[in-house]
């Protein structure tokens, strides 16, 4: 028993355990998602719940977990650069869809910021918490910067960004199927604008064209949110 505790104390300090847990939890979540084919069986959502339960049960602080998981987190940078490949592959379609994309970007971005702030305000959210909601559809690094700039709480915005991504990934397919929309360019692009990288990750699982357009939507909305959110906030708050 003493040995087991010693072993745990050693392993819990090491990145190895938490890196392994992250990969194994994801593989399990991915397998469940493939089998169930249910919108709620989203691999990010299931992995987060699995790992969160282990951390809570073992009393492991998030910072300790992140020492191992940071190697996975780091790959977000190269993955963003890798989005250039599906973009390049879709170049002829991109040229033809510049105007539809601009329209969808303006509509999706304005709606995301406007309705989020309006609904939160109607439900009694005020002050810096309300401001933290505005940039939540942009990709995390941009959203945090905007939140700080307009007087929100960046750490709260970080949580709102991730939840927005998961909500988008969970609702996108049933919502768009229900509406009978079959244009993968439109579907992907709108999801990228509304639900950044997590939405894009979901889009790639469904259809590669949707994934490529989702990546563009995410990138363009990062730029537009950085401009629009401070502007809208200065007009209304």
């Amino acid at each position: 028993m003493r040995d087991a505790i010693d072993l745990w104390t050693y392993l819990a300090q090491e990145p190895l355990l938490w890196l392994t847990l992250t990969l194994v939890a994801y593989l399990a979540a991915d397998a469940v998602g493939e089998r169930l084919r249910h919108p709620l069986a989203n691999p990010v959502l299931i992995s987060v719940i699995l790992i969160g339960a282990v951390l809570l049960a073992t009393g492991t602080p998030y910072a300790r977990y992140f020492e191992g998981a940071q190697f996975v987190h780091f790959m977000l940078g190269p993955a963003t650069v890798a989005l250039a490949f599906p973009l390049h592959e879709n170049l002829p379609r991109l040229k033809r869809t510049a105007l539809p994309m601009l329209a969808a970007l303006a509509a999706g971005s304005l709606t995301a910021i406007g309705t989020a702030v309006a609904v939160a305000w109607a439900l009694g959210v005020r002050g810096e918490t309300l401001l933290s909601v505005a940039p939540k559809s942009a990709t995390a690094p941009v959203a945090l910067g905007v939140s700080e700039q307009i007087g929100g709480i960046p750490s709260l915005t970080a949580v709102l960004v991730i939840i927005t991504g998961i909500v988008g990934a969970v609702i996108a397919t049933p919502l768009l199927n229900f509406c009978g929309l079959t244009d993968w360019r439109a579907r992907g692009f709108a999801v990228g604008v509304a639900a950044h990288g997590i939405g894009t990750a979901h889009a790639f699982r469904i259809n590669s064209t949707a994934g490529a357009f989702s990546g563009i939507g995410m990138g363009l909305n990062a730029l537009l949110t950085a401009v629009l959110a401070p502007l809208l906030i200065s007009l209304f708050v």
Partner: peptide, 11 residues
């Protein structure tokens, strides 16, 4: 790509 969002999601 989904895997890469897991560490931030656990946060």
């Amino acid at each position: 790509l989904s895997l890469l969002f897991v560490p931030a999601g656990v946060g």
